[in-house]
């Protein structure tokens, strides 16, 4: 694979936590995109840690306006570039709260308009910037500050929203999932979006040390386990082509993934065994459905 840009377009010295999955994703994404890119971000971790006034980490033009409108702002940027007859890539990089929840209507509108925009969601599976509140990207059984485990609670009672399927329902030109644990795969997918005209959606699984509760040296390991258990399927759907799925040879039991993180640790108690089993069932279903 040839990457357009070898230099790092996310300057050092930003304010991400040690071991931040989203920061790893950003470096990889920008490396694949190159300099001729305008990035639009929603309010969230990435916005906060990259953009302190006068100390921006962005080496590409970047705009943040609000939490729920990054797709609409991108639509305007794209329309303006069309008017100016300029061809820079327009890429949204927003979190799961801004994508799955508050910004979903705007994203749906952008998909429907068929503009040449790539929407990348860094999915850390909760509202991390505000203190780990549950989002519709939060997985089943996960304990967050608004879906806490307790005497009468096993954590979040609903499964994770299937956002890539929602993107696919818009008949967009390219949908992919990726993980920071597989950088070559992620960068290849991001680079591919530059070759496809139309709306595109990539969802990147980005472990969060604070929100998920694991040691900051283990980010990649956690990301890998999510894929190896089948809980986070990695695939791509290019319009008109069969789905390509990342196969996993030696699948691991989900308990290994759950044990690694404080957000799931309550499920290892005997009385929560049913819930842990149900998460294993989600993995098994994914393995069957996607042919992992």
């Amino acid at each position: 694979m040839v990457l357009a840009e070898r230099e790092n377009l996310l300057a050092a010295g930003h304010r991400a936590c040690p071991g931040c999955g989203a920061a790893i994703a950003l470096r990889q994404i920008l490396r694949a995109l190159g300099r001729d890119t305008i990035v639009v971000s929603a309010t969230g971790c990435v916005e906060t840690f990259t953009s302190p006034y006068g100390m921006s980490a962005w080496e590409v033009p970047w705009i943040h306006s609000l939490f729920e409108n990054s797709a609409s702002v991108a639509s305007g940027v794209h329309a303006a570039l069309e008017f100016l007859r300029e061809k820079s890539s327009v890429v949204v990089i927003s979190g799961d709260g801004g994508t799955f929840d508050i910004g979903m209507g705007a994203m749906s509108g952008m998909f429907e308009r068929k503009q040449n925009i790539t929407y990348i969601c860094y999915d850390n599976e909760a509202y991390m910037n505000t203190g780990v509140q549950g989002s519709s990207a939060t997985p089943y059984g996960s304990s967050t500050t608004t879906t806490p485990a307790g005497k009468a609670s096993f954590g979040k009672i609903q499964p994770k929203k299937d956002m890539p399927a929602i993107a696919l329902a818009h008949d967009v030109d390219y949908v992919a999932t990726a993980s920071i644990a597989y950088p070559q795969d992620l960068m290849k997918k991001v680079a591919k979006t530059k070759e496809i005209y139309g709306p595109k959606y990539i969802q990147v699984h980005t472990p969060c040390t604070i929100g998920w509760g694991f040691d900051s040296s283990k980010t990649v390991e956690v990301g890998k386990l999510a894929v190896e258990t089948g809980l986070v399927p990695i695939y791509e759907v290019e319009k008109g082509k069969p789905m390509v799925v990342k196969k996993v040879k030696n699948k691991k039991p989900v308990e290994e993934y759950l044990r690694f993180q404080t957000r799931f640790r309550h499920l290892l108690k005997e009385e929560q065994k049913d819930i842990a089993n149900q998460i294993q069932a989600i993995c098994d279903k994914n393995i069957e459905r996607f042919g992992i």
Partner: peptide, 11 residues
């Protein structure tokens, strides 16, 4: 939001 983006792009 769209005119926010387009205006910021200098149009």
């Amino acid at each position: 939001s769209a005119v926010y983006g387009s205006s910021a792009t200098g149009v």
